[in-house]
Simulated assay, not measured.
Amino acid sequence: MLSKAIGKKAARKIASKVVGRFIGRLVPHAGWVLSVKGVWDHRQEIGEITDQLTKNNKENNNNPMWYVR
């Protein structure tokens, strides 16, 4: 009977370590997924901002101090 109880406790510890390791390895991937989703959801605004920055850079190409106020 003692061996069965020890076996169950060991199995529970091993299972919790394996599950914990699995969840720990998923966390960075979940962060990447959320970051990519955020960029995808705001792609229109990001495109407008980069277009405006590109336009400003081209307009002020001959003035190296244009961004200094």
Rank of each mutant, 00 (worst) to 15 (best):
I49T: 12
Y67E: 15
G38L: 04
I6W: 10
A11E: 08
K17W: 13
Q44W: 08
W32M: 11
T50A: 09
Q44H: 14
R21C: 11
V19A: 05
A11K: 09
F22P: 01
I6K: 12
I49A: 10
P64A: 10
L26S: 07
K55Q: 10
N57C: 12
A5K: 09
N61T: 10
A30V: 07
K17L: 10
K58A: 11
K13Y: 08
W40T: 00
I49N: 03
G24E: 08
L2H: 10
G24M: 08
I6P: 01
N56C: 09
W40S: 10
H29S: 13
R69V: 12
Q44S: 12
A15I: 02
W32R: 11
A30E: 06
P64W: 12
G38P: 01
K9I: 11
S3C: 14
K17Y: 11
G7N: 14
S3E: 15
K37S: 02
G31V: 00
A11F: 08
I23G: 01
E59W: 02
P64V: 12
D41K: 13
E59L: 06
G20M: 02
L2I: 12
R21P: 01
I23T: 04
P28M: 06
M65Q: 14
A15D: 03
K9E: 05
D41M: 06
A11P: 00
A15M: 03
N61V: 13
Q44C: 05
M1K: 15
R12Y: 03
R25K: 14
R43N: 07
H42G: 03
H29D: 09
K4W: 14
I49S: 03
Y67S: 15
H29R: 09
A15F: 06
W66N: 05
R21I: 14
E59R: 01
S16A: 00
K13C: 04
H42Q: 12
I49D: 05
K37F: 07
K13V: 11
P64K: 10
E48S: 11
I46R: 06
I46N: 06
N57V: 15
E45S: 09
G20D: 03
Q52C: 13
L2A: 13
E59Q: 07
